[in-house]
């Protein structure tokens, strides 16, 4: 029994079909609990007032925006090395979800920045990096859409994802060098002495877990859709071939 068994599209679809509704239920339920907890039952921050409640949306979406790209990088590498179709399709399925997460992080950030920093947008390293990440997502999706042959598209987008990761990292450091930041350092990290206070921390972690589960559910669902699309194309191609033979 190894994880590579699930590289078989049929086995993958059969396995995830019962998981998907549960994952959605768990993700949406967790999100509802986390957001209600955060929205109704946490105090206001003494400096930022009620705007601190935006953290329950901003931090998880930013976290996932980056991790969605990392997931695409890993699945792209698996496709390049082992050529499992499910892996390439999972990368394709994750990209639009990553875009939504990036937009959500940018939008909530802008709405949060307006009252606190007095501006919707600043050319701050973190903000700029996210904008660049957004452009990388757009290019990646556009390349998938542009190439008709599925295997060629999977190959080319994988290489773009790998090369893009290097440049995204480089851009991140370039942006740090280029601008001094308004943005506070990471809200959650394991080694920081001072993290966000516990009252905010608990619902925040719940929200992050819920976002994560929801992301997994969306990617599984979209991957299954892509597999089914691929199967339709294959069956139609076979039908056309047999027609020609008759």
């Amino acid at each position: 029994m190894s994880i590579w068994e699930y590289a078989n599209p049929k086995k993958f679809s059969a396995t995830v079909t019962p998981i998907i509704p549960w994952a959605f239920a768990l993700g949406l339920g967790g999100l509802a609990v986390g957001l209600i907890w955060g929205f109704f039952f946490t105090p206001d921050d003494y400096r930022q007032g009620a705007t601190v409640k935006i953290i329950y949306l901003h931090v998880p979406s930013a976290f996932l925006a980056i991790n969605a790209w990392l997931m695409m990088l890993v699945t792209s590498l698996i496709w390049v090395v082992r050529r499992h179709h499910v892996s390439a399709l999972a990368a394709k399925a994750a990209a639009p979800v990553g875009v939504v997460m990036t937009v959500m992080a940018l939008a909530t950030g802008a709405i949060w920045g307006q009252p606190i920093w007095g501006t919707w947008w600043a050319w701050d390293p973190r903000l700029t990096s996210f904008l660049i990440l957004f452009l990388f997502y757009l290019g990646y999706i556009a390349l998938w859409e542009a190439i008709p042959d599925p295997d060629t598209a999977a190959d080319l987008t994988s290489i773009l994802c790998i090369v893009g990761s290097v440049f995204a990292l480089l851009s991140r450091y370039a942006a740090v060098y280029w601008a001094q930041g308004l943005h506070q350092p990471a809200s959650l990290s394991l080694d920081a002495e001072e993290n966000v206070a516990d009252v905010f921390w608990q619902p925040l972690v719940l929200c992050m877990v819920a976002f994560g589960i929801l992301f997994v559910a969306l990617v599984l669902l979209r991957t299954r859709t892509e597999i089914a699309k691929r199967r339709i194309a294959a069956l139609e191609a076979r039908a056309r071939r047999s027609e020609v033979r008759v």
């Binding site: 660049i132 452009l135 757009l138 290019g139 556009a142 440049f167 851009s171 370039a174 942006a175």
Partner: peptide, 14 residues
């Protein structure tokens, strides 16, 4: 252009 311009960002900055 859409693919290449994001890759140009670090070069442009420096």
């Amino acid at each position: 252009s859409l693919l290449v311009l994001p890759l140009y960002v670090p070069t442009l900055i420096f």
